[in-house]
Design a binder for these strands. Structure first.
Lengths: 219, 219
DNA sequence: CGAGCGTTTGAACAGCGTCAAAACAAGTGG
DNA sequence: CCACTTGTTTTGACGCTGTTCAAACGCTCG
């Protein structure tokens, strides 16, 4: 969808002018919207009019090759900011994975804040920088790790944000596969194998408990 | 090597206090150094005291897994800035590929400039942002493209910067492989195949001429 | 001319992908 | 409450792409 056209009169806008905290100490006026699973939040090539933050639910950013092959750039969980780009148009599309509430801040508001306030500018740079660091880790994963190492690294990364030892997976096997550069069958097989090895347990398909995190470690 | 310790009295410092143009309209005082092929410019975990710019030659940034598997993050050609990170220590090491001259600018000088001048801060953000975009393309390449598509994309990207149709490769097959997530044998075989198909010609191992760029295109 | 790398090529192998089917979970309507 | 539908996950059998191991080739530079 294209937000500009959906904005006026949409019943899905939860509120307007609410302060949104994009980073610690960086609050800007914005509003929030609700999205259903698989609903597009913004599309590739659309203008970068907004910056987004996940309030609840989960979001994926995706990129497609002309023949349909898909790469998921990242998953965003509550508190994460996404869609911050310097160019005029998005290079990824973003979709809700689960029912999600997403906060939107106008890019123009952001730019004015960065103009006025050096500290705000630095915080925005930090957001981009952090995304870059994540991607650098991911590049090593995709370039040089095997299937078990990829899935293991993915689980460990998820575990790091969730405080408890139980990981709730909002995304499907196919989403994980398209994020890790594998097929959904390989992801499923790898998880089954890890469960057989007692490295994890799988109380249900979307729930993982780490039993032996060390066994998932690669480098 | 660790520059701080090598700086005083080094005969390799070509000059001091020279103005270095990190981005169009962003000049900062710095100095330049010469590096031999395979010589380390900075190491993983070293403090991020400098930002670097290739004057001549070529540079690679690399990351290692504990068992020696290597991922090359990017190749930097004359005019490119590298080593700009927000954290206190580098997440990659950098080595010269060919005999190279590299300009160094103190990070502290950079930070003072960004503090004073909003435009300078924005240019630094743009550098990080551009690196992020490159990496996003690379992620799609590594996650979803086959060997021929990876090598093809790599050649097309190199061709885009060199104005002429002839590409000079400063890096080895092994370097290309570690950048694309392949083995050096696969890179070599793929290039040979492309030459057989008349998509390229290989006047020498380190020189590629694009004969049919369209055939290299993937998506 | 010979030594030492880097590159090319070959043959066998393995990891992951593809295709297919069955099992499972969740929601819907009778 | 159960039968049915739909989408997701698991599992199996097989094949291909890219890796591994190995040898030959060809630059480049003493």
């Amino acid at each position: 969808m294209y937000v500009e056209s959906a904005m006026s009169g949409s019943s899905r806008m939860a509120s307007v002018g609410k302060p949104i905290e994009l980073a610690p100490g960086l609050e800007l006026p914005g509003f929030s919207m609700a999205f259903d699973p698989n609903e597009e939040i913004f599309g590739e090539e659309e203008p970068t009019d907004f910056v987004y933050k996940v309030i609840s639910g989960a979001v994926r950013t995706t990129r497609l090759l002309s023949d349909g092959r898909r790469q998921i750039g990242a998953f965003y969980m509550p508190g994460d900011v996404f869609g911050l780009e310097r160019g005029e148009t998005h290079r990824f599309s973003a979709e809700a994975i689960a029912p999600s509430e997403v906060a939107l801040v106008r890019r123009s508001a952001l730019e004015r804040a960065a103009e006025r306030d050096g500290a705000a500018a630095r915080k925005l740079w930090a957001l981009t920088s952090h995304e870059l660091e994540d991607l650098q880790d991911h590049m090593l994963l995709m370039g040089r790790k095997n299937a078990a190492e990829r899935v293991g690294s993915f689980l460990l990364k998820l575990a790091r944000r969730g405080a408890s030892g139980v990981i709730e997976l909002p995304m499907s096997r196919g989403d994980i596969a398209d994020h890790l550069g594998l097929t959904l069958e390989t992801v499923s097989r790898t998880l089954s194998q890890m469960a057989r090895d007692q490295s994890i347990s799988l109380p249900s398909a979307r729930r993982v408990v780490l039993r032996n995190p060390g066994a998932l470690l690669a480098a």
